[in-house]
Amino acid sequence: MKQRVEIVKRILDSNEQLAQQNRKKLDDHGVFAINVMASPGAGKTTFILQTIARLPKDIHLGVMEGDTAPVTIDSDKIVAAGMPAVQINTGGDCHLDANMVGLALDEFDLDEINLLLIENVGNLICPASFVLGNHANILIASVPEGDDKPYKYPNIYRNIDVLIINKVDLLPYIDFRMDYFRQGVEMLNPNLKTFEVSAKTGEGFDGWIKWLQEKVGNIQE
């Protein structure tokens, strides 16, 4: 005999529960955490390094570096810049999940930091589905990737709080219609906070640093 059992449960429910635990831990220690997503090579690590170079004195940063293989290239750069960094090897997975982040959180002294940047695996599809427990999601889109990305990868633009348009120093060399790009973003995520920057030259970083300071200040109150 057969019976139907109603479930109606989000498939990634267990990940979402772990993410809630991460969030609680971050909140308990007054740490503002940001999930940094982008395609491979968009400039995530360079962006974090430029942020470090301009970091106000009252921000104490920690960085998680997600990679699919056990390489420490990115985390070595962060450590060389004087910040605590933990490398997460996803073992081939195309995204970080809440469990990996929870384990990496244990490796930080959370009382020593008030800002955590989590560099997700370079990928525009998978990270969008896995919440981590962080407070803000940012996407770094870079000019050489092309102006059609919001139209082709709508999902990732839906749940971000800040959009960074990186490598604007390359605009003179690349056919990138900023209006077309931003129109696609507007359809998916109206009034999204957006900064046009160059992680190479530091152009446009003042606004981003100000935003960071505001958020870190708020969580510590």
């Binding site: 005999m1 057969k2 019976q3 139907r4 059992v5 109603e6 479930i7 109606v8 449960k9 989000r10 498939i11 990634l12 589905s129 999902n155 839906r158 998916l188």
Partner: peptide, 16 residues
């Protein structure tokens, strides 16, 4: 967006 972001298990059929 009205629909299209769903991602869930609705129900299962079991034998008892």
């Amino acid at each position: 967006i009205i629909t299209g972001e769903e991602f869930q298990v609705d129900h299962i059929e079991i034998r008892k």
